[in-house]
Structure formats: C-alpha cells, structure tokens
C-alpha cells in the first residue's frame, strides 16, 4: 500500500470537510458506522454490489436492489445513510470517483443525509488524470456510464463567503478504505 498517497488522500479529503478511516479487514465496517452515527437499520441503504465484495461481512441496512423500483426514490429521500462503492480514489484532491450502475444509482449518493464510500487501498490513484485514463481504457469504445466525482459533503459559501456544510446534498461524507495490500 502506498502510505504517502493514502495519507495525502486522507488529509485532502479532511480539508474538503469529509472523513476517512483506514481498516485492515472489512469486519469492523459496521462498528465504524455505528460509532459515528446512530441510525436505525431501516434508515441505511447500501449498494448490494459493495456488500458482495466484503465476503462474509453483512452490512447493516437495506440493499437498494431489494427495494421496488417505484419506491426507491421515496426510500432514499427518507434514508439517513447511503453506502456506495467507488471506481477509484484520487489522492491529489481527496476525491472518490463513482460510476453509475444498477446497484449504485446516483440517487444513492445524493439523497440521504450521509454518504459513505467503501473503497480498497489498491483503488488509490495519485491524480485525476490517472483515474480517468484507467476508466476510459476499461470501457474502450463502449459507452461510458455517467461518472460523479465526490470531494467532501455538499457545501456553500454563498452567504458572505462563510462556509456552510450540507446544502442540497449530503451533510456528511466519509470514506472507509480497506487495506488489501497483503
């Protein structure tokens, strides 16, 4: 694991108002989330594809793909927490790059009050150039889905340049990085 890059990622994400936790195995994810937020299980919605990658670990909350298509938006509006994966982390700016998919629709990272990204240490890129090059190479001539770069919670400084966190999107944003350098 590139410790320097991970350190840079963490500090730059913190500069942007987000938080980052690095763990050595996925087992403690639920504890981290419970330690930070006291949300009820029904208020937490996660991307099923993320949970699959965690092996035996079961995430607290509801898999978005188990909610009927017509009820999803309503559930997400009322949800407190949305958990997604990502396609890469960018150290230079403290950014998570998300790619839209069936189990990770953009609304999942947009409507709930808190957004948490679960990522792996080998998903870390130094710059946006490297991240985008990897994504475009992966898709080749196939059509790219929509990509969202997230750097911290939603924020504004429209009133006297005073920073206010939590405008129209998530009020809190965090990244859990699972170290799989071994």
């Amino acid at each position: 694991m590139n410790t320097d890059l991970l350190e840079m990622f963490t500090s730059r994400l913190e500069d942007a108002g987000g938080w980052c936790r690095i763990i050595s195995s996925p087992g403690s994810i639920n504890d981290i989330i419970r330690g930070k937020y006291s949300y009820e299980k029904k208020d937490m919605i996660y991307a099923g594809s993320v949970e699959k990658q965690l092996g035996d670990v079961e995430l607290d909350g509801i898999d978005i793909t188990t909610i009927h298509q017509n009820d999803r938006r309503k559930s997400l509006v009322n949800a407190k927490l949305g958990i997604t994966g990502c396609a890469g982390l960018i150290a230079e700016t403290g950014t998570a790059g998300l790619i839209t998919s069936v189990s990770e629709p953009r609304e999942l990272s947009l409507l709930p009050e808190t957004h948490i990204v679960i990522a792996y240490s080998d998903q870390l890129f130094a710059t946006l150039d490297e991240f985008l090059a990897k994504v475009t190479a992966e898709y080749g001539d196939a059509q790219l889905p929509s990509i969202t770069l997230v750097t911290g919670p939603s924020r504004t400084a429209d009133i006297e340049k005073k920073l206010v966190v939590g405008v129209h999107g998530p009020v809190e944003f965090g990244v859990v990085v699972i170290d799989r350098s071994e």
Partner: peptide
Amino acid sequence: RMTSYVSMINGPRSQYNP
C-alpha cells in the same frame, strides 16, 4: 482543489445509465 461535485454526464437513462 476540487469542487464537492463534478458530474460527468454521459447520457439519459438507458442500459448504460440505469
């Protein structure tokens, strides 16, 4: 260093954009 969000939109709802 980066704004909170950068949306790179590649199309309307479709098989690629659920």
